[in-house]
Design a protein around this nucleic acid. Structure first.
Lengths: 226, 226
DNA sequence: TACGATCAAATTATCGATTTTTTTTGACCG
DNA sequence: CGGTCAAAAAAAATCGATAATTTGATCGTA
């Protein structure tokens, strides 16, 4: 069963959904800086909605650990720190290893096809639209894990992905993501997964994370983040 | 540093906080049944607040996986199933093992004292107030893990604890929790933790979970849940 | 100068009313 | 009968206004 690569449009869904998507992107991409106070009134202007949808969107973002809620004192974006990054990296390695192995253990044709497709879409988008590449990149990584019949685990992985990618955006130009041939790494992971080789897939995936992680951790230690 | 065992009072905090605590307890204890529709208006009467705090509380509960939000169609409590329970149990074993080992690895006097204290409070409450025992029980289990300097991991564990305990409440009288001497098991875990024996502590903790888990899983398979 | 109290401005939290969306009902037609 | 459609009812989402709370500035006092 082929599915549309449904990246939601900016006007889909309720006002809350829209606010949620926009705010999340703004936080993940660093448009809203770590620790920044999120004043409802200010955001109302930028997002062109009332206070209620914004409040609700911020509540939802709280659960993603992207926003912190301080009772009676409003909302602010989550702080960043070297420890926090380290924690995210470690947890990701543990949980994605778990999920990937289960996913491969239950491998079937449908999953494999979805995976190949996700990879193709990501590869194709690489040269083109910079913004959607990141979305497709996430879809590829989640497609790897998708066959693990463990919704809670997948949700955790998805959250950790977003928390991690935020650091990559914050590193911005400092992180020469293109220098390393990430494309090859993705290809290697895909190949191992399709070959049902859980050990190879897992070690390649984890190396993929640790490589970027080590670089980012270095930046963080030296406080070179914007 | 001794801390008060601060179980929040029913009138502490904002209306949202109150609604959040009350609703969570109602869901965890099964007063609100799995899959039940949560109509804002209906809850307004029961909780004696406006719609806004309730909406916001429900949004927060969504992130705890206790409430499901369906866009434009309101909220309902999370469904239960044998798979879901199985998933929770497995994830709990993995994550608490991780957290407990890190907690013990970094063991210090302050942590040890907090732990002993949490155990004592739980043990003392056992005969008395049934309602607060569960709260203290959770505090003890979280105290075991608390020394792992990994807030995200601890948050995951806390969430999974609540999801799990919900099943125990739903099993209600069917689960003869008192039959097994849980008190001994807690004592054993505490002793191993205080002795800094990570292997023993972890295996005792996981057995503690698996024991209850196996029984509950049996009930679920046979659909004997209320 | 440092400290604490007090008041005004800013901001958040909450409420009640309105708008939008979904669900239900019941009449009508094949 | 069974299914479709439209109107009515119910419920959710959103808005604008009000109440409660925090923050920041000012002033008097030791």
């Amino acid at each position: 069963m082929l599915m549309a690569n449904d990246l939601p449009d900016a006007r889909d869904g309720s006002a809350t959904q829209r606010a949620y998507r926009v705010l999340r992107k703004m936080i993940v991409t660093g448009e809203l800086k770590p620790g920044e106070k999120l004043k409802i009134d200010g955001l109302r202007g930028r997002l062109d909605t009332g206070a209620s949808p914004i409040r609700e969107a911020l509540s939802l973002l709280t659960s993603d650990n992207l926003v912190e809620r301080i009772d009676q004192r409003g909302f602010r974006t989550a702080e960043i720190s070297a420890q926090n990054f380290d924690e995210i990296l470690k947890l990701r390695c543990t949980l994605e290893d778990l999920a990937l192995r289960e996913s491969i253990a239950k491998a079937d044709d449908a999953w494999e096809e979805q995976l190949v497709l996700a990879h193709h879409r990501m590869a194709r988008a690489k040269d083109g639209n910079e913004a959607t590449f990141e979305d497709l990149h996430k879809l590829f990584h989640m497609a790897l894990l998708a066959n693990a019949s463990s919704p809670i685990l997948l949700k955790f992985c998805s959250q950790l992905y977003d928390l991690n990618i935020r650091y990559r955006f914050l590193a911005g130009r400092a992180l020469n993501y293109q220098r390393r041939d990430v494309s090859d790494e993705h290809g290697g992971i895909l190949a191992a997964a399709v070959a049902r080789d859980a050990d190879a897939a897992s070690s390649r995936l984890l190396d993929h994370y640790k490589m970027t992680g080590a670089f980012l951790a270095g930046l963080l230690e030296r406080n070179e983040l914007s």
